[in-house]
Design a protein around this nucleic acid. Sequence first.
DNA 1: AACTGGATTGACCGATCGGTCAGCTTTTAG
DNA 2: CTAAAAGCTGACCGATCGGTCAATCCAGTT
Lengths: 215, 215
Amino acid sequence: MTTTSTPEITPARRRNQSLILEAAEQVFARHGYRGASIQAIAEAAGLPKSNVLYYAGSKRELYVALLERMMNRWNAMLDDISVDDDPAEVIEAFIRSKMALTRSHPQGSRLFAAEILQGAPFLQEYLRGELRDWVESRARVFKQWAARGLMDAVDPVWLIFLIWSATQHYADFEAQVLGITDRTALAGEDYQAITDFLCRVILKGCGIVSQRLSE
Amino acid sequence: MTTTSTPEITPARRRNQSLILEAAEQVFARHGYRGASIQAIAEAAGLPKSNVLYYAGSKRELYVALLERMMNRWNAMLDDISVDDDPAEVIEAFIRSKMALTRSHPQGSRLFAAEILQGAPFLQEYLRGELRDWVESRARVFKQWAARGLMDAVDPVWLIFLIWSATQHYADFEAQVLGITDRTALAGEDYQAITDFLCRVILKGCGIVSQRLSE
DNA sequence: AACTGGATTGACCGATCGGTCAGCTTTTAG
DNA sequence: CTAAAAGCTGACCGATCGGTCAATCCAGTT
């Protein structure tokens, strides 16, 4: 009620909350919901366990807050499309923005993967609601493009899953990618090369001719 | 005495070991190493906790045994190739066998994913050794094919990751796939359609002309 | 100086964790 | 048959789990 209007409400509060969120995202992503312990999160944040619970409320609330933050990032990426758009542009932008999300928020991506791996107990509703609707609306446009001869008549849903999986892979399986390529981290140019590769193969593979991707 | 006329060496032993392995694979895949509890495994197997430990020895031993079983399945899939082989045949067989593994052993695939998600603490050596060698040998052949004009000059390692991720997705993200497609399980014809889709898009996307994939 | 309301944390709770072990039952060997 | 071996499991152990709480701390305000 009696909110201090103009200045900073709580200087240290935001800092600690941010510390906790980042630490929790890391631990939940690595060990899943059950495997994560508040003690481990507290140590990663450099705070006592009680302080983590003071800000987070409970383990469940903390986990849900992290999922919501990640789904907001995800939703911010999903803009609408129309039949009159250029398939090449739309699908390339789709691949690039998904890859950018994977790259900018690898922990969040892995958190999402861990949630799905354990059967999506907290995201069932989102998957069967919002996300399904979004996929179906895209699928309809893809089919219209195919009918107009702008791309091959591939199943749009499998295509969307292909793009999701191929990009998501570089967050979820980072340990494998780094181990096999003998790196300690993927550089910006690596992400650039991978994104270009995926755009090229997927667009060509679906018979989408792009005037912007020369070669 | 009059129990079995069949000459099995250990009747109940194999049965219980099998029960435990299947139950453990399910629980480890869902909740990761730390999140899995022996109690949960025991309940899934329908045995008392002590009995699980009697056969498994320890949680770690059980987990390692499951990883080894899965890596054996994986290795059984990896046959050698030569420059003189047909790229279309080899890569299509690659996609199909990887998809068959995903389909026949989804729990094992998810177990592998959970292991990689937590930073591959038990599989580091395998990834940086055997598997890296295998990828590099394949990569060399792919490059030779490209030099001979049999396929586009794409980076072979990104291509291998594309195939792995696109197929692995249908085990690891099964909950998402089922939620979005409004199914309770993927049917055999679904797997058939997805596999055909992936072969078609990836082969075409890499500029590999196959005489067997008509249309 | 006294007051105050949020921030902080050590101590503690019952539940569950992985693992041990003594003792029971069942199977096998002689 | 008996005895030894193997299979099995309830009871229990110290450690850790998520969570609570009372006590303390601290920056403003009066």
